Amino acid sequence: MFTGIIEDLGVVTNLKKEQDNLHLTIQSNITSELKIDQSVAHNGICLTVVAVLGDNYTVTAIKETIDKTNIGDLQVGDIVNLERAMKLGDRLDGHIVQGHVDQIGTCERIKEENGSWFFTFSYDQSSGNVTIEKGSATVNGVSLTVVNSEKNKFSVAIIPYTYEHTNFKNLHVGSKINLEFDVLGKYIQKLYEARL
């Protein structure tokens, strides 16, 4: 479980394909605190640390993860949002994030407004995912409040701190992003569909 509050930005230093798997090596300021078998969210994707060497660590993504997220698009030098799993007893500053990406979305619009930014994202609604205004959504692992919800798109407002301390500053119109929808909303949607 995660909160969607990004701890650090990592840099992809190596990518190695092995059969259907992808091994990613990440350089990060939190590497010295990591251990093998620990879960870390990378742009919202929960992956297990399999090796630690100096200020680099390695995680492995399987085919299903590659197929359902944007992790296969990463290149050496790309910056990823990082968050370690939350500790029981800590404050839950974001919202409940599982680290299980529901689908890929697309950045449709970026609008700067007097020191903050509004990002609009679209997604394929055929999988049944929904957003509601003032509800929660996770974009590349960042816990956000939805400020505008439409049929297959939603907007979020980004404050300067979040813009500077996440990879939001690297997004552009057309960027593919990882989306995790609110877990409670997903359960309610499934229950609603079952009653119909």
Rank of each mutant, 00 (worst) to 15 (best):
M1H: 08
F2I: 07
F2G: 04
E7H: 13
E7P: 08
K17N: 01
K17H: 10
E18K: 15
Q19G: 01
D20Q: 01
N21T: 05
H23W: 07
I26H: 01
S28K: 00
S28I: 12
S32Q: 12
E33W: 01
E33S: 12
L34C: 11
I36A: 01
I36N: 07
D37G: 01
A41F: 11
H42S: 01
H42I: 15
N43K: 01
I45L: 00
I45N: 00
C46P: 04
T48C: 03
V52C: 09
Y57C: 09
T58R: 11
T60W: 04
T65F: 04
D67H: 11
I71F: 04
G77P: 01
V80E: 03
N81I: 10
A85D: 06
D90S: 05
L92N: 09
L92G: 12
V97D: 09
V97C: 03
G99V: 06
V101F: 02
V101H: 03
I110N: 10
K111W: 06
K111Y: 14
E112T: 11
E112Y: 13
E113R: 11
N114Q: 15
G115N: 14
G115L: 12
G115P: 02
G115S: 09
F119Q: 05
T120Y: 14
S122K: 00
D124Q: 08
S126I: 07
G128Y: 08
V130L: 15
G135E: 15
G135T: 03
A137W: 00
T138L: 08
N140P: 03
V142Y: 10
S143G: 04
S143R: 10
T145Q: 11
N148L: 14
N148M: 13
E150D: 09
E150H: 13
K151Q: 13
K153H: 12
F154Y: 08
S155V: 09
A157L: 06
I158T: 00
I159G: 08
E164W: 02
H165A: 08
T166M: 12
N170P: 03
H172M: 12
H172G: 01
S175V: 10
K176C: 09
K176H: 14
L179H: 03
E180G: 12
F181M: 04
Y187V: 11
I188T: 14
L191H: 02
E193L: 04
